[in-house]
């Protein structure tokens, strides 16, 4: 693990020196792929010095706290946790963002998905679509089977009724 860390540390410190020329002064590297607003860039140059140093200040503050908590006085973190329990738990649980996400996004997504699946796909589309058609066809054929009784006299009756109906329609028209 040491070798990769050393390589990464070297890169972190020196990559800026190595590629400074190519990235910032060179024109062929970006080949027109980035654009900037000249006014904005000029305005950025004119911010107070403190703004430019803010990252360094934050880094130094972190360094000082780390040195205090882990080297000078190792008992300090435990004492802090004991004193500021609520704050510690809030930060330790990442501001409860995971719980918030779970409650706000994950659970509703699963509930809606299950509802779409069971209620939508299976309960509505399949039920009234293909399965509904199959059911209707089955019902129809069962009815048709009942009509085909095989008795000649009932067929003759249907023919007679149809004939009488047709003739009366022609006469009545």
């Amino acid at each position: 693990m040491l070798v990769p860390l050393v390589l990464l540390a070297l890169g972190a410190v020196f990559a800026g020196f190595a590629f400074h020329h190519q990235f910032i002064d060179g024109e062929e590297f970006w080949a027109g792929s980035i654009a900037f607003d000249a006014d904005l860039i000029h305005a950025m140059h004119e911010v107070p010095l403190l703004v430019k140093l803010s990252a360094t200040i934050a880094m130094l503050a972190g360094l000082a706290i780390a040195w205090g908590a882990y080297i000078r006085n190792p008992g300090w973190p435990a004492a802090f946790v004991a004193q500021f329990g609520v704050l510690y738990r809030f930060v330790h649980n990442k501001w409860y963002f995971d719980e918030l996400y779970h409650w706000l996004l994950v659970k509703p997504a699963f509930r809606i998905g299950r509802w779409f699946w069971k209620g939508g796909d299976e309960g509505t589309i399949d039920r009234f679509g293909p399965n509904g058609f199959a059911w209707a066809v089955q019902l129809g054929s069962r009815g048709a089977v009942r009509l085909q009784s095989g008795y000649l006299n009932s067929y003759a009756l249907v023919m007679l009724v149809g004939l009488v109906g047709a003739v009366s329609w022609v006469i009545a028209r």
Partner: peptide, 14 residues
């Protein structure tokens, strides 16, 4: 099309 032009063109003008 935006008014901002590629960095190179901007650079050359300055």
């Amino acid at each position: 099309l935006g008014k901002t032009r590629p960095a190179v063109a901007e650079h050359e003008e300055v």
